[in-house]
Structure formats: structure tokens, C-alpha cells
Amino acid sequence: MVIAEVLQHTSPELFLSDLKARNKPGVLSELVDKLVAGSPNITKRDAVLQMLESREALGSTAVGPGVAFPHGRTLAVQRLTVLIARSRKGVDFDSVDGEPTHLFFVLIAPPQDSGHKYIKSLAALTEKLQDANLRKTLLAAEDFATFCAALRED
């Protein structure tokens, strides 16, 4: 799956330019608030938050240098939804390398999705975000459009 396909599941309403929260529970809460506000497809805030908290209990999703991919499936959504967020200061998200996390790609999928779009999207994003120059560009991007344009570049 190419990044352009992943980006079809997000929108400017699902972009948080600079998170206010400064710790992991606060970030998860802020991310879910934005999901509910930005997607008419998501209304059950508590169900989504509970699923993401469970996923973090399995192991931190902050696996890339400075990047986290909170993700999972829940009955509370009807289609794959992708939210993108940044924290310019960085937050402690229990990252694998112990460094602050600046970029967040949240993927929420329904229990069943045809063609396993969710896992393929996750794989595409984790691979793409290995690029240190790209991460720097994304952190500096002015807005959602610039951010997505940088992500689409080969």
C-alpha cells in the first residue's frame, strides 16, 4: 500500500498541529477528543480511548525515533480512520528508545476490513517514517497540506 492510499483515510479535521498534553494519558485523551470532533464516523469516545489504552498495555506504540503509531480495531468505528498529530516540544510516550515523541499517527479500524487495509497502512507508515529527513520536514510543515505533500514524496 502506498502512502497516498493511507492519506485517503484522514482529513484536515483529523490533524492536530501541536498537542497541548504533556504526558501519555493526556495525549491519548487529546487524540481521541480530536478523533471524535473530526470524524462523524466516531461518536463513542470512551470505547476508542479504552481500546487505545489496552493497545498501549500490550506494548508502547512509540516505536519509531520520535514517532508513535497508536492503533487498533474497535466496534466504535465504521471505517478506517487516520489521525495525525504533532508535539513540537515532544512528550514522554514510553518510547522504545526513551526519547520524546513528536509525531503521532493514529489508526483506528473496524473489527473487519476488507483487504486488511489497516495492517497494510500501519506497515506503510512505519516504513516511511524511518527516514530522518522526512521526520524533520514533517515537524516543520506549516499545515496539513504541506505535511501530506511531504509524506507523499518518494
Partner: peptide, 8 residues
Amino acid sequence: MGFSIAGL
């Protein structure tokens, strides 16, 4: 992909 599943 780099994800830990230690908390299973």
C-alpha cells in the same frame, strides 16, 4: 514493524 507484544 518494531512493535513490542511483551504485554500480551
